[in-house]
Protein backbone atom coordinates (compact mmCIF):
# COMPACT_ATOMS: atom_id res chain seq x y z
CA UNK A 1 0.00 0.00 0.00
CA UNK A 2 2.73 2.37 1.03
CA UNK A 3 4.53 1.40 -2.09
CA UNK A 4 1.62 2.47 -4.27
CA UNK A 5 1.26 5.84 -2.58
CA UNK A 6 4.95 6.36 -2.87
CA UNK A 7 4.82 5.94 -6.65
CA UNK A 8 1.81 8.19 -6.89
CA UNK A 9 3.54 10.96 -5.00
CA UNK A 10 6.68 10.46 -7.01
CA UNK A 11 4.83 10.79 -10.28
CA UNK A 12 2.91 13.85 -9.15
CA UNK A 13 6.06 15.59 -8.02
CA UNK A 14 7.73 14.68 -11.28
CA UNK A 15 4.84 16.18 -13.23
CA UNK A 16 5.10 19.34 -11.16
CA UNK A 17 8.85 19.49 -11.54
CA UNK A 18 8.73 19.03 -15.30
CA UNK A 19 5.97 21.59 -15.70
CA UNK A 20 7.79 24.15 -13.61
CA UNK A 21 10.99 23.51 -15.44
CA UNK A 22 9.35 23.96 -18.83
CA UNK A 23 7.40 26.96 -17.60
CA UNK A 24 10.52 28.76 -16.48
CA UNK A 25 12.86 27.70 -19.22
CA UNK A 26 10.87 27.67 -22.42
CA UNK A 27 10.21 31.11 -23.74
CA UNK A 28 7.40 31.25 -26.24
CA UNK A 29 6.95 35.00 -26.31
CA UNK A 30 8.55 37.80 -28.29
CA UNK A 31 10.68 40.54 -26.73
CA UNK A 32 9.24 42.64 -23.91
CA UNK A 33 9.07 46.28 -24.90
CA UNK A 34 6.39 47.96 -22.83
CA UNK A 35 5.51 48.05 -19.16
CA UNK A 36 2.61 45.76 -19.99
CA UNK A 37 4.85 43.06 -21.35
CA UNK A 38 6.50 41.79 -18.16
CA UNK A 39 3.13 41.80 -16.41
CA UNK A 40 1.66 39.79 -19.25
CA UNK A 41 4.54 37.35 -19.25
CA UNK A 42 4.10 36.76 -15.55
CA UNK A 43 0.49 35.72 -16.18
CA UNK A 44 1.55 33.65 -19.13
CA UNK A 45 4.06 31.75 -17.08
CA UNK A 46 1.54 30.90 -14.38
CA UNK A 47 -1.11 29.79 -16.87
CA UNK A 48 1.47 27.82 -18.79
CA UNK A 49 2.61 25.93 -15.72
CA UNK A 50 -0.90 25.17 -14.47
CA UNK A 51 -1.91 24.10 -17.95
CA UNK A 52 1.10 21.85 -18.31
CA UNK A 53 0.46 20.17 -14.99
CA UNK A 54 -3.14 19.41 -15.90
CA UNK A 55 -2.30 18.34 -19.44
CA UNK A 56 0.66 16.13 -18.56
CA UNK A 57 -1.25 14.65 -15.66
CA UNK A 58 -4.26 13.77 -17.78
CA UNK A 59 -2.13 12.38 -20.58
CA UNK A 60 -0.20 10.17 -18.22
CA UNK A 61 -3.44 8.95 -16.65
CA UNK A 62 -4.91 8.02 -20.04
CA UNK A 63 -1.81 6.32 -21.41
CA UNK A 64 -1.19 4.53 -18.15
CA UNK A 65 -4.72 3.11 -18.05
CA UNK A 66 -4.52 2.06 -21.67
CA UNK A 67 -1.36 0.22 -20.88
CA UNK A 68 -2.08 -1.15 -17.42
CA UNK A 69 -5.67 -2.16 -17.95
CA UNK A 70 -5.44 -3.40 -21.51
CA UNK A 71 -7.07 -6.69 -22.24
CA UNK A 72 -4.36 -9.31 -22.33
CA UNK A 73 -4.35 -12.07 -24.89
CA UNK A 74 -6.95 -14.66 -24.17
CA UNK A 75 -8.42 -12.69 -21.35
CA UNK A 76 -12.16 -12.49 -21.25
CA UNK A 77 -14.47 -10.85 -18.82
CA UNK A 78 -15.43 -7.41 -17.65
CA UNK A 79 -13.77 -4.84 -15.46
CA UNK A 80 -15.00 -4.04 -11.99
CA UNK A 81 -18.58 -2.79 -11.83
CA UNK A 82 -17.63 0.57 -10.35
CA UNK A 83 -20.29 3.14 -11.06
CA UNK A 84 -19.02 6.15 -9.22
CA UNK A 85 -17.40 7.43 -6.10
CA UNK A 86 -19.00 10.43 -4.55
CA UNK A 87 -16.05 11.72 -2.56
CA UNK A 88 -13.76 11.41 -5.55
CA UNK A 89 -16.23 13.30 -7.69
CA UNK A 90 -16.55 16.03 -5.11
CA UNK A 91 -12.79 16.37 -5.03
CA UNK A 92 -12.52 16.82 -8.74
CA UNK A 93 -15.30 19.34 -8.76
CA UNK A 94 -13.85 21.44 -5.99
CA UNK A 95 -10.20 21.46 -7.01
CA UNK A 96 -10.84 22.80 -10.54
CA UNK A 97 -13.29 25.33 -9.11
CA UNK A 98 -10.61 26.62 -6.79
CA UNK A 99 -8.01 26.70 -9.54
CA UNK A 100 -10.34 28.55 -11.85
CA UNK A 101 -11.34 31.01 -9.17
CA UNK A 102 -7.74 31.72 -8.26
CA UNK A 103 -6.79 32.16 -11.90
CA UNK A 104 -9.72 34.54 -12.30
CA UNK A 105 -8.70 36.65 -9.30
CA UNK A 106 -5.12 36.66 -10.42
CA UNK A 107 -5.95 37.75 -13.93
CA UNK A 108 -8.14 40.50 -12.49
CA UNK A 109 -5.08 41.66 -10.64
CA UNK A 110 -3.01 41.50 -13.82
CA UNK A 111 -5.62 43.31 -15.84
CA UNK A 112 -5.80 46.00 -13.23
CA UNK A 113 -2.03 46.41 -13.25
CA UNK A 114 -2.15 46.72 -17.01
CA UNK A 115 -4.58 49.56 -16.56
CA UNK A 116 -7.58 47.71 -17.87
CA UNK A 117 -9.84 48.69 -15.02
CA UNK A 118 -8.96 52.39 -15.08
CA UNK A 119 -11.50 54.88 -16.21
CA UNK A 120 -11.37 55.45 -19.92
CA UNK A 121 -10.45 58.93 -20.86
CA UNK A 122 -8.17 60.40 -23.36
CA UNK A 123 -6.36 63.35 -22.00
CA UNK A 124 -6.38 65.95 -24.66
CA UNK A 125 -4.80 69.34 -24.29
CA UNK A 126 -5.71 70.77 -27.65
CA UNK A 127 -9.44 70.32 -27.82
CA UNK A 128 -11.60 69.49 -24.87
CA UNK A 129 -13.48 66.66 -26.40
CA UNK A 130 -13.82 64.98 -23.04
CA UNK A 131 -17.56 64.79 -23.36
CA UNK A 132 -17.26 62.38 -26.24
CA UNK A 133 -18.17 58.86 -25.33
CA UNK A 134 -15.26 56.44 -25.27
CA UNK A 135 -16.43 52.91 -25.77
CA UNK A 136 -13.61 50.66 -24.81
CA UNK A 137 -9.92 50.23 -24.53
CA UNK A 138 -7.10 49.95 -22.09
CA UNK A 139 -6.26 52.97 -20.07
CA UNK A 140 -3.27 53.41 -17.84
CA UNK A 141 -3.92 56.72 -16.26
CA UNK A 142 -2.49 56.17 -12.84
CA UNK A 143 -4.23 58.83 -10.85
CA UNK A 144 -1.38 61.05 -9.72
CA UNK A 145 0.12 61.21 -13.12
CA UNK A 146 -2.39 62.85 -15.41
CA UNK A 147 0.76 63.47 -17.22
CA UNK A 148 1.86 66.81 -18.40
CA UNK A 149 4.14 65.29 -20.95
CA UNK A 150 1.30 63.03 -21.91
CA UNK A 151 1.43 62.24 -25.58
CA UNK A 152 -1.93 62.39 -27.20
CA UNK A 153 -2.11 60.81 -30.58
CA UNK A 154 -5.09 60.25 -32.76
CA UNK A 155 -5.10 57.09 -34.79
CA UNK A 156 -7.29 56.62 -37.76
CA UNK A 157 -7.41 53.36 -39.61
CA UNK A 158 -8.70 52.71 -43.08
CA UNK A 159 -8.40 50.03 -45.71
CA UNK A 160 -5.42 49.40 -45.60
CA UNK A 161 -3.32 51.84 -43.60
CA UNK A 162 -2.89 53.48 -40.25
CA UNK A 163 -2.55 57.22 -39.95
CA UNK A 164 -1.19 58.87 -36.83
CA UNK A 165 -2.23 62.39 -36.13
CA UNK A 166 -0.12 64.41 -33.72
CA UNK A 167 -2.47 67.24 -32.79
CA UNK A 168 0.24 69.05 -30.81
CA UNK A 169 2.38 69.36 -33.89
CA UNK A 170 -0.55 69.49 -36.26
CA UNK A 171 0.83 66.86 -38.58
CA UNK A 172 -0.02 63.39 -39.73
CA UNK A 173 2.46 60.58 -39.98
CA UNK A 174 2.37 57.08 -41.38
CA UNK A 175 4.83 55.90 -38.79
CA UNK A 176 4.23 56.04 -35.09
CA UNK A 177 7.14 57.70 -33.27
CA UNK A 178 7.13 57.76 -29.50
CA UNK A 179 9.74 58.55 -26.87
CA UNK A 180 10.84 55.74 -24.62
CA UNK A 181 9.51 55.48 -21.04
CA UNK A 182 6.71 57.95 -21.50
CA UNK A 183 3.07 57.30 -21.43
CA UNK A 184 1.32 57.49 -24.77
CA UNK A 185 -2.40 57.89 -25.06
CA UNK A 186 -4.12 57.12 -28.31
CA UNK A 187 -7.65 57.68 -29.40
CA UNK A 188 -8.50 55.44 -32.31
CA UNK A 189 -11.29 55.47 -34.80
CA UNK A 190 -11.83 53.76 -38.10
CA UNK A 191 -12.99 55.33 -41.31
CA UNK A 192 -14.49 52.23 -42.90
CA UNK A 193 -14.47 48.70 -41.47
CA UNK A 194 -13.18 47.26 -38.20
CA UNK A 195 -9.42 47.09 -37.83
CA UNK A 196 -7.28 46.39 -34.83
CA UNK A 197 -4.09 47.88 -33.46
CA UNK A 198 -1.67 45.23 -32.27
CA UNK A 199 1.96 45.46 -31.23
CA UNK A 200 3.08 41.95 -30.19
CA UNK A 201 6.13 43.23 -28.33
CA UNK A 202 3.86 45.45 -26.22
CA UNK A 203 1.23 42.74 -25.59
CA UNK A 204 -1.58 45.13 -26.36
CA UNK A 205 -4.40 45.01 -28.80
CA UNK A 206 -7.56 47.00 -29.32
CA UNK A 207 -10.06 47.00 -32.13
CA UNK A 208 -10.46 50.17 -34.12
CA UNK A 209 -14.15 50.50 -34.74
CA UNK A 210 -16.03 52.79 -37.09
CA UNK A 211 -18.38 55.02 -35.17
CA UNK A 212 -17.01 54.09 -31.76
CA UNK A 213 -13.77 55.67 -30.63
CA UNK A 214 -11.56 53.46 -28.49
CA UNK A 215 -8.63 54.25 -26.27
CA UNK A 216 -5.27 52.62 -25.99
CA UNK A 217 -2.64 53.79 -23.54
CA UNK A 218 0.80 52.29 -23.18
CA UNK A 219 4.32 53.03 -22.07
CA UNK A 220 7.15 51.70 -24.22
CA UNK A 221 10.28 50.66 -22.37
CA UNK A 222 12.73 49.65 -25.03
CA UNK A 223 14.17 51.64 -27.90
CA UNK A 224 13.60 49.98 -31.24
CA UNK A 225 11.33 49.51 -34.18
CA UNK A 226 8.34 47.22 -33.81
CA UNK A 227 5.59 46.19 -36.18
CA UNK A 228 2.06 47.46 -35.82
CA UNK A 229 -0.23 44.77 -37.12
CA UNK A 230 -3.86 44.98 -38.10
CA UNK A 231 -5.43 41.99 -36.42
CA UNK A 232 -9.02 42.16 -37.61
CA UNK A 233 -10.01 40.87 -41.03
CA UNK A 234 -10.63 44.02 -43.04
CA UNK A 235 -10.50 42.97 -46.67
CA UNK A 236 -8.15 41.47 -49.25
CA UNK A 237 -5.07 43.38 -48.11
CA UNK A 238 -5.67 42.76 -44.41
CA UNK A 239 -2.44 40.77 -44.30
CA UNK A 240 -0.50 43.69 -45.68
CA UNK A 241 -1.94 46.30 -43.37
CA UNK A 242 1.15 47.07 -41.35
CA UNK A 243 2.86 50.08 -39.89
CA UNK A 244 5.82 50.54 -37.61
CA UNK A 245 6.16 51.99 -34.19
CA UNK A 246 9.53 53.59 -33.53
CA UNK A 247 10.49 53.95 -29.93
CA UNK A 248 13.39 56.34 -29.53
CA UNK A 249 15.26 58.37 -26.97
CA UNK A 250 13.50 61.56 -26.02
CA UNK A 251 16.01 63.77 -27.83
CA UNK A 252 15.67 61.80 -31.05
CA UNK A 253 11.94 61.95 -30.71
CA UNK A 254 11.96 65.70 -30.20
CA UNK A 255 14.15 66.17 -33.22
CA UNK A 256 11.77 64.13 -35.35
CA UNK A 257 8.78 65.93 -33.91
CA UNK A 258 10.18 69.39 -34.54
CA UNK A 259 11.14 68.48 -38.06
CA UNK A 260 7.56 67.46 -38.88
CA UNK A 261 5.72 70.03 -36.86
CA UNK A 262 3.64 72.47 -38.89
CA UNK A 263 4.45 76.04 -38.09
CA UNK A 264 0.85 77.24 -37.68
CA UNK A 265 0.65 75.73 -34.28
CA UNK A 266 3.50 77.80 -33.00
CA UNK A 267 1.41 80.91 -32.55
Amino acid sequence: MLNKNFYLILIISLVFAISFWIGFNVNLLPAEASINAPIYDELFKILFIIGLIIFIGMTIAVIYSLFKFRKRNGQIGDGIALEGNLSLEIVWTIIPSIIVLLIGLYSYNIYDRMGGMKELNHNHEMMSSNTEKIWAGISQTSDNEIAINNLSIEVSAMQFAFLFNYPKGNFISGELHVPVDQKVSMKMESKDVIHAFWVPEFRIKQDIIPGQPTILNFTPTKVGKYPIICAELCGPYHGGMRASIIVEEESDYNEWFNKNKKSEVDL
Partner: peptide, 13 residues
Protein backbone atom coordinates in the same frame (compact mmCIF):
# COMPACT_ATOMS: atom_id res chain seq x y z
CA UNK B 1 -6.18 30.78 -20.93
CA UNK B 2 -8.01 32.63 -23.70
CA UNK B 3 -10.82 33.32 -21.31
CA UNK B 4 -8.51 35.53 -19.23
CA UNK B 5 -8.91 39.06 -20.59
CA UNK B 6 -5.32 40.17 -20.15
CA UNK B 7 -4.12 37.00 -21.84
CA UNK B 8 -6.59 37.21 -24.69
CA UNK B 9 -5.76 40.81 -25.47
CA UNK B 10 -2.42 39.75 -26.90
CA UNK B 11 -3.50 36.63 -28.76
CA UNK B 12 -6.99 37.49 -29.91
CA UNK B 13 -7.39 37.06 -33.67
Amino acid sequence: ALAQVPFDIHVHD
